[in-house]
């Protein structure tokens, strides 16, 4: 994937705070990229809906042959995370042994360095780490837009992949 800095100014926001798209017709949540069309019901009006940042691993893979910009990070785990609000997002899961990932593990979002861009720029994105506080929770309606909840027991926003 090659993204210019200009393009990332458009693509970046969904990677820096967590939200899903909510269909005004069927109320279903979809990943952030479904901005135009609800894949579930065909509705054409979707709005951003904040996520609390916690969920559960429902599926995962371990990448041993990464694309160019992720070389050096392999092997790494990419999970399908079922967020507590009820939408599945793909994301890296950090701090777990690739040979011992378990479906059902509770995880929480944290902001991390994702990769180096081809112009030498650094891309940040949310990743997931094992949640130390396993009780499911949902975003309070009045929550602010800052969104990404940092697990208390871990160093926040450490710029290491």
């Amino acid at each position: 994937m090659t993204v210019s800095a200009i393009e990332f100014s458009r693509l970046g926001p969904p990677k820096l705070h967590l939200f899903a798209m909510k269909c005004e017709t069927c109320q279903a949540l979809s990943p952030w990229w479904e901005r135009s069309h609800c894949y579930k019901c065909g509705g054409d009006t979707l709005t951003e809906s904040e996520l609390a940042g916690t969920g559960e691993i429902t599926n995962y893979t371990v990448v041993y042959y990464p694309p160019r910009e992720y070389v050096g990070q392999e092997p790494y785990v990419v999970g399908h995370i079922m967020m507590d609000e009820g939408v599945t997002l793909p994301a890296p899961v950090m701090g777990v042994d690739p040979d011992a990932v378990e479906v059902g593990t509770r995880v929480a979002a944290t902001l991390r360095r994702m990769k180096l861009g081809h112009e030498g720029d650094i891309y940040y994105s949310y990743k997931f780490v094992v949640d130390d506080d396993p009780a499911p929770r949902k975003k309070a309606p009045a929550a602010t837009r800052s969104a990404v909840r940092k697990p208390a027991a871990r160093k926040a926003a450490t710029p290491t992949p």
Partner: peptide, 29 residues
């Protein structure tokens, strides 16, 4: 590694595959 990156463009490499996915790993899911 270059080929893998090009092939990944057959999916949404800038949104979904930003998570580090590739075609093999996407199919592994």
């Amino acid at each position: 590694v270059e080929g893998t990156s090009i092939i990944a463009q057959a999916a949404d490499s800038k949104e979904e595959y930003f998570s580090g996915l590739t075609f093999p790993s996407g199919t592994a899911l």
